[in-house]
Structures are given as C-alpha cells and as structure tokens.
Amino acid sequence: MTFLSTLILALAMSTDAFAAAVSKGVALRKPRFSEAVRTGLIFGVIEALTPLIGWALGSIAAEFVSEWDHWIAFCMLLVLGCMMIRNGLNNESEEAPPVTRHSFWLLAATGFATSIDAMAVGVSLAFIDNNILITAAAIGLATLVMVTLGVMVGRIVGIIAGKWAEVLGGLALIGIGSAILYEHLSAVP
C-alpha cells in the first residue's frame, strides 16, 4: 500500500468514530479538551487494535466478520443510542448533575462498535502486501485526532441543543448504526 492509500484508509476508518464522538461531546456539559483527548485515545487505541486482530485472524474469520460486522455494529450502537435517549429524557424530568465525563466502558463499547469495520479491513489486509503495523498506527492516529475534534464540535452542538443534547446524541448513534447496516445491506446483490 502506498502512503496516500494508507492515509485515505485511515481517514475513512475514523469517520464513524468522528460522528460518534460528536454525539459524546453533545451529551457532555462543556467537555474540556483533556476529556476530548481521553476519548480520542480510547477510540484511537481500539481503532488501531481491531485491524491488527482482523489481520491476525486472516482468512479464518473473514467470512464471519464480513457477514456479521454490520449487524454487530448496528445492535451495539442502537443499544447505546437508546440508553442515551432514555438518560436524556430522564434528565428532562429531574434536575440531574451535568455529565462531565463518560465512563471508560461506555467509550470503549462505542469505540468498538464503530471499529468493527476496521477488523474486516484488517482481514482483507492479510492478503495483500502491506505493513499492518504502519496501517494500524495510521488508523489509530487518525481516529485519535478525529475523535478529539468530534468531542469539541459536540461541545458547540451541545450548547446550542441545551437539554435535548443527550437525546440528539443518542439519535446520532442510532443513525450511525443504521447507516452502517444500510450500507452493507444495499451492497448485497
């Protein structure tokens, strides 16, 4: 793979994570830059590890991963999105303290859900001449940057959206999952 194709692949793999990060930033009340970097690191590490795992599994898991990756991502993002909507609607009726930090496990689950496609890419990279370590590092770094920016963009959207921010963030996660599912199902002949 050339440098340019590695860069394009890394950016493409980080777009879902960027959209999810915006929704995470929306759900937070004025996230700090340090929280955005923390979120970016969690997503970036997961996004870098999944193509390595996919590459290691190679052809053994290729059929399973490619057949089910979109369903797994959809279900995980649907559940996470519904949880955010429920929390947003519950916050509407009672004055809860503002969320200033997401739990590690919530971020890891969201990061994993948006990186399942990177595992499938890793499987396909096992069959071409490619330095998987450089590719995985590029994907992880691009995701770190995109997610950090996404959380900060979400901060602005959250201020504008007010009390409905978490509901909008949940709807965004459901939308991402639906788009992943639609993209894969529409590609089936």
Rank of each mutant, 00 (worst) to 15 (best):
W55E: 01
F64A: 11
D117P: 07
I132F: 12
S66T: 14
D117R: 08
H70F: 14
L78N: 03
W68Y: 15
A36M: 07
L41Y: 11
M119E: 02
V79H: 09
M76N: 06
V123N: 09
R86V: 11
T114D: 11
I53W: 08
I116A: 09
M119P: 05
S115N: 10
W105H: 03
V37Q: 04
D129T: 13
G40D: 02
A113G: 08
R101C: 03
G122Q: 06
L57I: 14
A61Y: 01
E67N: 14
E95N: 07
W68T: 05
V37T: 06
S124K: 10
L133N: 09
I132T: 05
P98C: 09
I53P: 00
G40C: 02
D69M: 07
F112M: 13
S93V: 07
I72T: 08
H70A: 12
G111W: 10
G122R: 06
I132C: 07
E94T: 13
V79Q: 06
A113F: 06
F104M: 03
D69P: 00
T100H: 15
T100L: 15
S124M: 09
F127G: 15
F127Q: 15
A96Y: 12
V37R: 02
I85V: 15
M84P: 00
V37S: 00
I132N: 04
E92V: 07
F104D: 04
I60N: 14
D129S: 14
F74E: 05
F112T: 03
G44D: 02
C75Y: 12
N130M: 10
N131F: 08
D117H: 10
I42P: 01
P51L: 08
A126V: 00
V45N: 03
T114S: 12
A96F: 14
L41A: 09
L125D: 02
L49Y: 01
A108V: 12
A62T: 05
V123P: 02
F74G: 03
A120I: 02
I128K: 13
N90C: 07
F104W: 13
F74D: 00
T110C: 11
S124I: 07
N90M: 02
E67C: 01
F43Q: 04
P51D: 01
V121N: 05
T114R: 14
R101V: 10
C82L: 15
N87W: 11
S66I: 12
A73P: 00
L133R: 09
V123Q: 05
P97F: 04
E47P: 03
G58Y: 00
C75P: 00
I53G: 01
E94H: 14
I53Q: 04
R101N: 06
L77R: 11
H102V: 07
A96Q: 12
I42R: 02
S59Q: 14
A96S: 13
C75G: 11
L41W: 11
G44C: 06
G122Y: 06
L106V: 13
I132G: 04
A120R: 02
F64T: 13
L49W: 01
I116D: 02
W105V: 08
H70T: 04
T39A: 14
M76V: 12
A113E: 05
W71H: 11
C82Y: 10
A62S: 14
E67W: 05
V65W: 08
G122V: 08
